[in-house]
């Protein structure tokens, strides 16, 4: 949620109540306020198709409210009828009569001239991994497996730091160009990639280290069928890196972002 916008709308609603505005204005203001909230109030914007559904529901609800008693009906229809019948508003009425169809026509024009966008294929953010993979002729069990160096964290911290440092080297020689210096998908080639690379700050705490290893070693070409899209530029690093280097890189990713990998026991197993 974008707090300032939400607050602003909430304050505006409070103001409406405080000022005891006319029902017509009240209804219009609520409609607009809710629209602003839905349209701009969320950090991840809501698609317009869903906003249409929601605003349809809100419209019906507001209509129901303003017509739910005779007083409210009068309060809302009075100004409208006066606007349409009294002579002093005639000019304004004429303007409205012309302007509304013009707006509708403009809307049609805009809708018919939407920019062409290539078809979109649904994307699975974290497709399920297979039970095991083969990397460099070695079978790696993704369900039960662990990062072979993770245990060093407690048993031999110095050695562990060495592995992390090696992972740092691997990252900055191979990954940084896309995934970026801060691992928030801000590498120098990001503007030329679609979909954009993973932001490691977001979700790796929900994942197991073996999952990261799978994604690194098999890359985009190794995605399962439901794990599209197929435009991803992530290469299968097993072609270029040693197994240990990939495990070290995984260590480094967690170390740098300050996240902990998900343990085996937390994963739902059948």
């Amino acid at each position: 949620m974008k707090i300032p916008i939400v607050l602003a709308v909430a304050v505006a609603f409070g103001l409406l109540r405080f000022l005891r505005v006319k029902l017509l204005i009240w209804a219009a203001a609520w409609w607009i306020g809710i629209y602003i909230l839905l349209r701009f109030g969320f950090t991840a914007p809501i698609p317009s198709s869903v906003i249409t559904i929601y605003m349809g529901i809100v419209s019906i609800a507001i209509l129901a409210y303003v017509s739910s008693s005779q007083e409210r009906r009068d309060e809302i229809s009075g100004p409208l009828i006066r606007f349409m019948t009294e002579k002093r508003y005639t000019l304004l009425l004429a303007v409205a009569v012309v302007a509304i169809p013009a707006l509708a026509a403009a809307n049609v024009y805009v809708r018919m001239n939407v920019s062409i966008e290539p078809p979109l294929f649904s994307r699975t953010v974290h497709p399920a991994s297979p039970a095991d993979i083969t990397v460099h002729d070695k079978r790696i069990d993704l369900d039960a497996g662990e990062n072979p160096f993770r245990h060093l964290e407690t048993s031999n911290p110095q050695e562990f730091r060495k592995h992390v440092e090696n992972g740092r080297r691997v990252y900055y020689q191979n990954c940084v160009f896309c995934h970026g210096d801060t691992m928030s998908a801000n590498g120098m080639f990001v503007h030329g990639l679609d979909p954009i690379p993973t932001n490691f700050h977001d979700t790796i705490a929900q994942l197991r280290e073996t999952f990261l290893f799978w994604r690194i070693s098999k890359g985009g070409p190794g995605l399962p069928d439901e794990g599209g899209p197929w435009d991803t530029a992530m290469p299968a690093w097993e072609k270029f890196l040693q197994e240990d280097e990939m495990w070290d890189a995984v260590l480094f990713l967690y170390d740098f972002t300050g996240q902990r990998p998900r343990g085996r026991e937390e994963v739902a197993t059948k």
């Binding site: 497709p127 297979p130 039970a131 399962p224 069928d225 439901e226 994963v267 197993t269 059948k270």
Partner: peptide, 16 residues
């Protein structure tokens, strides 16, 4: 059936 999915499944996964 799924191919390459884990977690709570209704039917066996077919990956591998």
């Amino acid at each position: 059936h799924t191919i390459g999915k884990s977690g709570a499944l209704r039917f066996p996964d077919l990956a591998g």
